[in-house]
Each structure stands twice: as structure tokens, then as C-alpha cells.
Amino acid sequence: MAAPLQLGFTDYEQTYAKKKTRRQRFLDEMEATVPWDPFLALISPVYHRPSAKGGRPPFPLEVMLRIHLLQQWFTLSDPLMEEMLIDTPCFRRFAGIDMVEDRIPDETTILNFRHLLEENRIAEQILETVNQSLREKGVMLKEGTILDATIINAPSSTKNKTGERDPEMHSVAKGNQWFFGMRCHIGVDAASGLVHSVVSTAANVHELNTAPDRVHGEERVIYGDSGHIGIEKREAFKDCEAEMRIAMKPGQRRVLPDTPEGRLLDLMEAAKAHVRAKVEHPFRIIKCQFGFRKVFYRSIRKNNLKLTMLFALANLWMVRERCPSTA
């Protein structure tokens, strides 16, 4: 862990203030919940070593990791992250930076660290590490999976350096509205509501196409909305022994007859919807709490790695009270 800091006057005031800000409370909770040692062990083998030729030494790995997580939680670009470290005492304290004695990483250093994580696909390893820890604690089970997807908007304007939109993004109609961007598909544990699989595609890719990549194969039951109707006919699920509990199309449910059989079918649909509602919680966290409402980068791969990291952090946020420390 980062060494205790020498506090300046502003830092001292905020540290010992009678009332903590909402941002400070959030950081305190995540400080106690993030499994720091396993995360550092994943990145350490690929992190830069001090050069034998001399030169400026690299920043401590834990400092850079903490800055990267701050970027994810507060949706900060590399330049804005540098400015926030200069302006915001609680960010410096969380990152372990002493304003008086330590250097503050500039935006290029923050960018290079992010690229390092992307090149080595560290986000996927972090999600697996978090989920393995939660399975060992009995929080995440393997008996059921909920499948769902959401559209992430991308800029549709061509007023940029290249004069064109991101070629990997695509337009799709949902209801009577058109969207341009990508689609994030996830698999969620039916018992806990925690995300175990993340797949990103262009917005026009159907949910059934990614379904095999979002199940782990040990489910007894699979839930899905009406977009997953026909999943049992797919080649990947022909030998699947899990029970498929797929929602009826909304139009069909609305015209169910007012008979004992019709009312029973409606109750069954309500029960399935009650379970499927858990899948909306991770989406709410990354979109409303972490602020990922639009794509951050060009290319689906880079955005998928960011989403994978966000869902790993969302899992930690959801279990912060049940598992105060996953280290």
C-alpha cells in the first residue's frame, strides 16, 4: 500500500473535516474493497523496469494503477486526469501522491500506462481475478446465467480529422428510434447479479450471435429477453442441458387471454422478468454511476477492454458491503 503522506494545509482540512464528501466516501469504500495485491501481481510482469542507463525512474506501479482506476470511476480523459490530480486533494491521497515531494504523472505517462494495459489485455485478467475471488467466497455461483445487451452510442458526426465515422460502429433501429454505435453483450450470474462475461460488437450484431461466448457451460438455467428466442436451435446450444427461460415477445404477452391458462402464463413471464431485472443493475452502474454513456475510443476492441474493466469494478462495487475486502 502507498506510504502515509505529508499533508498540506488543504489536504489536512479535508482529511479531518467533520463531514466527508460523497466522492471521498466512495473512494474510502473502494479502497477497502479492491484486491490491490492480485491486481498488482497481474501488471507487474509487464510494467516498465528502471533503466540501467539512468534517466527518470518510472512512477510506482501502485500509483499508476490507482490513477487508472480513478479514470474509470470518474470518466476522465488523460489530460483531465492530470488536472484533477493537481486540483483535487482526495484524488492525490487515493493515488498516494504527495504534492510537496512527489511528481504528478503527466497526461502522456497516464496514456502510456493505459496503452500498456490494453496491449496485454489486463482488463480481462482483472475481471477473471475478481470473479474467481468472489466464487471462492461463495458470492458468485454457476447455476444460472442471464443474457442481455445494451447499445453504447458513438459520435455519428464526420467533422473530425479523418472526415469519417468509426468504420467499426454501425447503425441499428430499436423500436422507432435509430442508434449509431456498438452493442455490449454480457452474461450475468443469476443468483448474485454479477457480470462474468463481456462481449462487444457493432450495434447491428444480433444478441444470439454472441450468446455462446457469454455462458460458461455449467449453467442449469439460462435467462434471456425476447431477443434470445430461438437460442436452443443454435448449433452451440443443441447439446446444452440447461433449461432455457426466454421471455415471450411483448406483443404476445399483451394479448394473452383472460383465462386461468393465460393468467398463469402471465405470472410465469412476470417471474422470469423478476430474475432478469438483475442484469440491469450492472448497466446502471457503468452508465449512470461511472458515466460510460458514449464510446470513449475508436475501435470496438479498445472500448471492449474499457467495458471489461468497468464491469470488473462494478462487481466490486456491488459486493462492497458483503465482501469489504476481496484481497
Rank of each mutant, 00 (worst) to 15 (best):
G217L: 13
D78K: 05
D98E: 06
K272F: 09
F179P: 03
V205H: 02
A314T: 04
K161C: 03
P167S: 07
K302Q: 14
D258G: 03
E261R: 11
M99Y: 06
F26Y: 09
Q14A: 06
P60Y: 15
E82I: 01
R214I: 07
M309W: 05
V100M: 12
M81P: 03
D189N: 15
L65S: 02
D258Y: 04
A271G: 05
V215I: 08
E269P: 01
A242H: 06
V34Q: 00
M182H: 03
R23A: 12
E168T: 14
T108K: 11
R284S: 05
P60T: 15
Y12M: 04
N160P: 00
F296A: 15
G55W: 10
D37G: 11
T108S: 12
T150N: 02
G55F: 13
K302W: 11
S156H: 06
S200F: 04
L80V: 08
M318H: 04
G217R: 11
E62I: 15
V46Q: 08
S44Y: 11
I104R: 02
K18T: 11
H196C: 05
T150P: 01
L256R: 01
T15M: 08
T33D: 09
R183T: 01
H48R: 07
I151P: 00
A191H: 12
D225A: 09
T308D: 06
N120C: 14
I43G: 10
F283Q: 01
L208E: 08
P79L: 08
D87N: 10
D266P: 02
D148L: 01
Y12G: 00
A273R: 04
L127S: 02
V199C: 06
K53S: 11
N160Q: 04
L307K: 00
N153D: 13
R23H: 09
L265C: 07
D78W: 09
L42W: 03
R114V: 13
P324T: 01
I285P: 00
L194D: 06
E128K: 13
G138T: 11
T308I: 15
N304K: 15
E13V: 15
S299W: 08
G227K: 01
Q132G: 07
K302M: 13
S77Y: 12
L313P: 01
L42V: 14
H48K: 11
R66L: 14
T10C: 13
K174S: 11
V172D: 01
R293Q: 08
M169A: 15
F74M: 12
A154V: 09
E321V: 12
G54D: 08
L61H: 02
I285N: 02
L80P: 00
T308E: 10
E164T: 12
I97N: 01
V130L: 13
Q177D: 09
I300P: 03
I231M: 06
T150R: 00
I229M: 05
